[in-house]
Amino acid sequence: MTQHVSPPRDGTDKTAPVGQPPSWRGMLVRADVRTLSLLGVLAVLILIGGITKPDEFLDTRNLQLVLTQASVIGVVTVGMTFVITSGGIDLSVGAIVALSSVWATTVATQEYGFGGILFTAVLVGVGCGLVNGLLIAYGGMVPFIATLAMLASARGLALQITDGKTQIVTVEGVLDLGERDAYVLGIPPLVMVFAVVTIIGWLILNRTTFGRRTVAVGGNAEAARLAGIDVRRQRLYLYLLSGLCCGIAAFLLIILSGSGQNTNGNLYELDAIAAAIIGGTLLTGGRGTITGSVLGVLIFTTITNIFALNNLQSDVQQIAKGAIIVAAVLVQRRTASTT
């Protein structure tokens, strides 16, 4: 898989090593083509939505709806993109969202109000990320296995806390954030959080040493170690970051659904991985793009939205979703290789 990546291992969408003009230009063009092809897919989807359901689809409320639905999984995907870029995988994201959301909505936590819920959601996410990171970076466990174990135990713990019951949130301050009155200039608060996380994520990956180290570790961990990067510490931070994103996402989900349930975050791991891969992040590591991941999330959410508006049933939705994943990746491959 990694063979077709050109020699300079640094492959994020905008940054490139200075002093190598040809590959620098090639990289930039290729990255742009990748992003452009994703925008193309999105444009086609918008066209389909606009033609089939002009009144319902091309509507401010629908735009707000699509972006709101994308926020929760979007934040998770930003964290996932970092982990995958470093050559790892985090299968536990859905379970961490579930655990954070139920821990933050217990009767005891809700007594502490808005702050208590936010604090707990974020801290539980970070805590799970920490355990993942320690097991992988210092315990020498394979990411697949360590996060799979976290998936199982976090879901189990979530079930133990809720006892299978739906925990309804009664803290007004939290609920209000999900209402239309909380929109600023027509932008829902959830979407703002999503945007901020995306921008910060983009800056970290593309404009900081931390981002370059992440790419380096993913490209060739041994080379990165020899170049003086503390690979293990880097890995620890990355899973911590993914956990943090899950905690934030859990808080958004609590606002959105007004409750905590142990079934929350069902199959988020697959959605986040799929969005990142469609976006152009290499599953083998060494290349990652936040822009692409976010576009991947938006493509999925838009598809779901168009299907629901056209009253297509789940069976058709699933078949089409699979076909579109394949199509999107093929289109990307073609456009990327012809330039």
Binding site: L65, L256, T263, T304
Partner: peptide, 13 residues
């Protein structure tokens, strides 16, 4: 999907 999360998402659509 019998879950609060999916109920919210599908109903909104």
């Amino acid at each position: 999907e019998f879950t609060v999360e999916s109920g919210q998402a599908k109903m909104a659509q």
